[in-house]
């Protein structure tokens, strides 16, 4: 049976070695200062009483004022589990040191966090966008991207960012024109009759901007 260690117990153990490292700890997680996270991680891996050989899961949470990088660590030999958190300093440009050197399993997951949350991992051997293409604007898992969230839905970007041309797909389930202040207009470089050719004559009135119906 896996022992789900409490953060405070692990924090004690870390403090013996790194007195300054632990920021907070509670029953579930232990938070470590970003500057020392690599050393602490190596300690967590190599300490015989902890022996967290595996970084099972690496992810990040956007708390709107700060980010949290969350590591779920698993010890195979001692069968115990702990959640390690790191808070990058800057919200605008979050950077934390990479733990790839400690757990190789983190490298793809850190790429994913970088790709979707925009947290850079300093020292990562190949930090790149994993799922999205290079040049994708924004980091989708941030709360500011398509500002949707429970209860206080605010349409942020009125259309989905798209390569070439800004006339994209309107996204957001309850999007209305009034809220967005954006109206579908002609795409730059596309003349109206191109639309006519594409959509057929019947739908002309609904599509072209100069028909006065939009």
């Amino acid at each position: 049976m896996t022992a789900w260690l409490t953060g405070t117990a692990v924090a004690e153990r870390i403090r013996e070695r790194f007195p300054e490292a632990v920021v907070t700890a509670n029953d579930v997680w232990v938070e470590v200062a970003a500057e020392q996270v690599a050393e602490v991680a190596a300690f967590l891996r190599d300490d015989p009483a902890l022996a967290f050989e595996m970084a099972t899961d690496v992810t990040a949470v956007d708390w709107e004022e700060y980010f949290e990088v969350v590591y779920h660590l698993q010890s195979i030999t001692r069968n115990q589990f702990i959640t390690l958190k790191v808070r990058p300093q800057d919200y605008a440009d979050p950077v934390v040191p990479t733990l790839t050197g400690v757990w190789w399993g983190a490298h793809l997951q850190e790429c994913e966090v970088y790709d979707l949350m925009g947290i850079r991992f300093a020292g990562h051997p190949n930090l790149r966008r994993l799922f999205l293409w290079e040049g994708f604007s924004g980091f989708p898992l941030r709360k500011s991207f398509l500002q949707i969230g429970q209860g206080r839905f605010r349409p942020g970007l009125p259309h989905f960012p798209k390569e070439g041309g800004d006339r994209g797909v309107i996204s957001g389930p309850r999007w209305t024109e009034q809220e967005a202040g954006w109206r579908p207009g002609p795409t730059p470089g596309v003349r109206p009759h191109d639309d006519r050719r594409r959509y057929g004559h019947q739908q002309m009135g609904a599509v072209t901007p100069d028909s006065g119906q939009n």
């Binding site: 400690v102 490298h107 051997p125 190949n126």
Partner: peptide, 11 residues
């Protein structure tokens, strides 16, 4: 071991 414990290279 073909590659070291912490080893590996960017994939």
């Amino acid at each position: 071991a073909g590659y070291s414990a912490a080893g590996g290279s960017p994939a």
